[in-house]
Nucleic acid binder design. Structure first.
Length: 483
RNA sequence: GGGCCAUUAGCUCAAUCGGUAGAGCAGCUGACUCUUAAUCAGAAGGUUACAGGUUCGAUUCCUGUAUGGCCCA
């Protein structure tokens, strides 16, 4: 144990010897730190009771100052031996930065003009035993910041701001969807069959049922069962789990909004997406244009809409309207310098070329639509070009933000798509879809045509808070355990 | 999974060519009844991530491990 902690433990004992409980209980506050400054004219000379954490202390012999912080901000405290008495002044002298106090005193303004509380009485609410990081530089070590987010939140005010904003963003999304009559539902997080996305799942085990379960990779198939059931407009805003690598844009558990609207299609979803994200942007930041990582991003709708094949043509010169066979596609991809698997299909290569040559060019909000059917096993085929689907993804600042499509409601086509996925799986693709007979069964009862949309909430929060890493918008990001 | 980088006092950071590991903040002792990164004086605080190796001598060079960061897959 380090010296600093020992000193604090000794102080704790001294407090107890003085008859002071270092870990107090309920404290009725009459005001808050920042409110005192805001309402100074009404509060001047009035008695207030506040509580919070001591973040700075300046002592001058028989008087001194401290700063107390609560959720609203900071307020200066003024202690005078003559006013609080010998015993309480001893307590003030023993105060450590980090201690949590209840304070009673009068509001006044110091000679230098700072609104402060002239302390008359103080209660210990919690003695802090661990020393806090430095007041000026805060906590910089990113590993410590993630592992001990509580310390990060205490000393780095901008971190608190990000997570307050995150909460506001999610609240605004819910308000928006409620105003459009969407019903918020909760579907299982533990799935007997992991479906609805291309990803590897986490596996867990139910003891009583002696059954393997998967943490969900997406709620999609359950939400569409509800569309079959007639709920018409549903959404779920909650966690998904994918057993994949960790990066600045990936966390194994992440928050996703999925919504489904009966009798709509992917074009309705485009309108909804740009309206939802831009209006939340405006509500949160008061502007449609944001400077993010050196780029000026304009969220004003309508956003650019461009077919995937046109985007590829724009950035590589390749026209896949004329490259119609798998063979031609493989040759073209090889020419671009890509490593091409012998069995790669045209649709798969279109997707790979898009990811390799187009994605990182997409800065402004852009709808990319018309994805190949091979990589879209749950999306409706395009009426004119059945090898493509009525699907889109939204990219902002090179990041995939949303994914949506007209939902495939033909159970026979869906079954054959599943079978193709099962084949891929058998061929070693751990991300390929599993067969879900019950989902087919649901579709066989008849699912109205519907538009579906998924939005990566963490990535939206990253954009709206100008955070370069997903770990900056997740309170407790996944880390390796440290023993 | 691969590449590069980082790890030094509670925190933020130094340390020349391989030669006794330093500072600021915090903490401790003392002075100070309007300071606000308070000031002044003094003393203290280190398994240099961990395990090896090379060397008379390693924070420094080499190997491995751990954790983290960035990039790539």
């Amino acid at each position: 144990m380090n010296e600093l902690k020992k000193v604090r433990l000794e102080k704790l004992e001294e407090l107890q010897e003085m008859g002071v409980n270092p870990f107090g209980s309920r404290y009725e506050r009459t005001s808050r730190a920042a409110l005192i400054t805001q309402n100074f004219t009404e509060l001047e000379g009035q008695k207030v009771k506040i509580a919070g954490r001591i973040m700075a202390k300046r002592r001058h012999g028989k008087a001194g100052f401290a700063n107390l912080e609560d959720i609203t901000g900071s307020i200066q405290l003024y202690f005078r031996k003559d006013d609080v008495g010998e015993e309480k002044y001893e307590l003030f002298k023993k105060l450590d930065i980090g201690d949590i106090l209840g304070i009673e005193g009068e509001v006044f303004r110091t000679q230098k003009g700072e609104v402060s509380v002239h302390v008359r009485d103080m209660d210990y609410l919690s003695k802090s035993l661990n020393p806090l990081p430095e007041k000026w530089h805060g906590l910089k070590d990113v590993e410590l910041r993630y592992r001990q987010r509580y310390v990060d939140l205490i000393v780095n005010p901008e971190v608190k701001e990000v997570f307050v904003k995150r909460s506001q963003i999610i609240k605004e999304i819910r308000k928006y969807l409620e105003s459009k009559d969407f019903l918020e539902v909760e579907t299982p997080m533990m799935h007997p069959i992991a479906g609805g996305a291309v990803a590897r799942p986490f596996i867990t085990h139910h003891n009583a049922l002696d059954m393997e379960l998967y943490l969900r990779i997406a709620p999609e198939l359950y939400l569409k069962r509800l569309i079959v059931g007639g709920l018409e407009k549903v959404y779920e805003l909650n966690r998904n789990f994918r057993n994949e690598g960790i990066s600045t844009r990936h966390n194994p558990e992440f928050t996703m909004l999925e919504l489904y609207q009966a009798y709509a299609d992917y074009e309705v979803m485009m309108e909804l997406t740009e309206d939802l994200i831009s209006s939340v942007m405006y509500k949160i930041n008061g502007t449609m244009v944001a400077e993010i990582e050196g780029h000026e991003i304009d969220f004003t709708p309508p956003w650019r809409r461009i077919p995937m094949l046109d985007a590829i043509k724009e950035h590589t010169g390749l026209d896949f309207m004329t490259l119609t066979t798998d063979d031609q596609a493989r040759q073209a991809a090889t020419k671009l310098g890509m490593e091409v698997k012998a069995a790669a299909t045209r649709g798969e290569l279109i997707n790979e070329i898009f990811e390799a040559f187009v994605e990182d060019k997409l800065i402004q909000p852009t709808f990319i639509y018309g994805h190949p059917v091979e990589i879209s096993p749950l999306a409706k085929r395009n009426a004119e070009h059945p090898e493509f689907t009525d699907r889109f993804e939204v990219f902002i600042l090179q990041r995939e933000i949303a994914n949506a499509f007209s939902e495939l409601n033909d159970p026979i086509d869906q079954k054959s798509r599943f079978l193709k996925q099962v084949e891929k799986r058998a061929g070693g693709d751990a991300e390929a879809h599993m067969m879900d007979e019950d989902y087919i069964n649901a579709l066989e009862y008849g699912m109205p045509p519907a538009g579906g949309l998924g939005i990566g909430i963490d990535r939206v929060v990253m954009l709206l808070t100008n955070s370069p890493s997903i770990r900056d918008v997740i309170l407790f990001p996944t880390l390796r355990r440290r023993d």
